[in-house]
Design a protein around this nucleic acid. Structure first.
Lengths: 242, 242
DNA sequence: GACTTTATTGGCTTAAAGCCAATAATATTT
DNA sequence: AAATATTATTGGCTTTAAGCCAATAAAGTC
């Protein structure tokens, strides 16, 4: 404890007599595409884990960033070209072993965005890919990024349960079946059709726009819907139970 | 971005060519006492904010701590003598303005523990107090700790709604009314008596231990209960709706 | 035209919450 | 001692929402 107070004393003059951990930000960006949930990965250009796949992320720039969310957003924009309006902080992981360079702390953010091909908006990173979550296990990712993605995935499941996120990642207009499939994908479980419709329609977050054109295939034409104006304000309506 | 890759290159050799933010951990410890929700504050012994009240917390010790939760637990033990079995990470706040020494990041943890007088277990800190949440607004706390406490308080509300935390902070045995009051205090809202009893009793987390002795006052004697063995395993039973 | 596929709706059952009042057991007051 | 106040416990109802399943509707394909 003497050690501790000595530190605080020295800190008074902004002197570091001890090492502090590396601090970084990582971002797990999800999207829905072709009926799959995908996560955006980049290829690392530098050691450690050079050439390995990793989540986009990086260090705080003390002269540019106002806060850590700004750091995350800056990295997100740089690597995806998209300024996600919703950036959710998931958790912070820090320990002695996650980075071979030493003690390291990272704050993980998450976003769910509409699909866009990576080639169109990735600039500096040598290669960025949308990796289907199902193929993830086979990859060897940098650092503890497998774990980070699991954590973000869990948050996405929970978040979806009490929000209306999927409304904003589907191509418009969409049918209620498509919307339900999106919810099921994100939540990782199947939902009861009748209950789903009741909830969604009673919430008055949608308005019907088309009279009923089928989209790809067979069967009775479905009503086409779009999020109604202001539905962004109601992102945290609870949509479904556990 | 050249800047960025250069950094990553230099980091390969563990060289820092740029400043990194201060990184610390803070802990908001709550308890119930005399029908009030209280938070544990300490008095800072060093600049900045010397002599101001603040949350307990501090910096990572790279040679001692295995991870940031260990840092939090080490600080918690040092300042309260209690090893909280449940330490919940609330959020991480980092920006250029929260610490006069410069860019600073802190990860906030939270715990709810049974009441114990501070004098008994606080050692190094000159003075530690349980501050009633109602008196908090009048205090001028160090850094952004007012905000941090608000964030922890919000988490405590939500956490209580889907857990059974209060079972473990009440003096045993307790009555169902006492338990309900604890839930109401923590959740910041009143609950319906009948519904409360149904939920709690159906969950089979309690067993009746007394035949019905009144505790302080008047009225019909109430049944006395204790958490049943193993109820710690069911901490995440959803107890009440929104 | 018969069959398949998907969408939509109706009509139940079931589960749980909310509401309110009746009854019970004690202490306090008159 | 009786009346009153206070708190606890229980019963019974209404309301709300979920789950289940089948009937009907509107398109396709064979």
């Amino acid at each position: 404890m003497t050690e501790e107070t000595e530190r605080q004393y020295l800190n008074q003059y902004n002197i570091k007599d001890y090492e502090s951990p590396l601090y970084s930000v990582d971002i797990a960006i999800f999207t829905l595409h072709n009926g799959q949930l995908k996560v955006l990965l980049v290829e690392r250009a530098a050691h450690p884990f050079k050439h390995s796949r990793a989540l986009p992320g990086g260090f705080v720039d003390l002269h540019i960033d106002a806060d850590i969310e700004a750091t995350a957003r800056r990295k997100l924009v740089a690597k995806t070209g998209v300024d996600a309006p919703l950036l959710e902080q998931v958790t912070t992981v820090g320990n002695a072993s996650r980075d071979p360079r030493g003690w390291s702390v990272t704050t993980l953010y998450m976003a769910l965005i509409p699909y866009a091909p990576t080639a169109d908006f990735v600039d500096t990173v040598s290669e960025a890919i949308w990796c289907p979550m199902e193929e993830l296990k086979e990859l060897s990712l940098a650092f503890d990024h497998q774990l980070l993605i699991e954590l973000a995935r869990e948050r996405l499941k929970n978040k979806t349960a009490y929000s209306v996120l999927p409304l904003h990642v589907l191509e418009r207009p969409f049918t209620l079946s498509q919307l339900q499939h999106a919810f099921e994908l994100l939540m990782g479980k199947s939902l009861e059709k009748k209950s789903f419709r009741r909830r969604i329609l009673n919430a008055e977050l949608l308005h019907q726009v088309g009279e009923g054109v089928p989209e790809g295939g067979k069967g009775r034409p479905a009503g086409l819907y779009e999020p109604s104006a202001g539905s962004e304000r109601h992102l945290f309506v609870r949509v479904f139970g556990d």
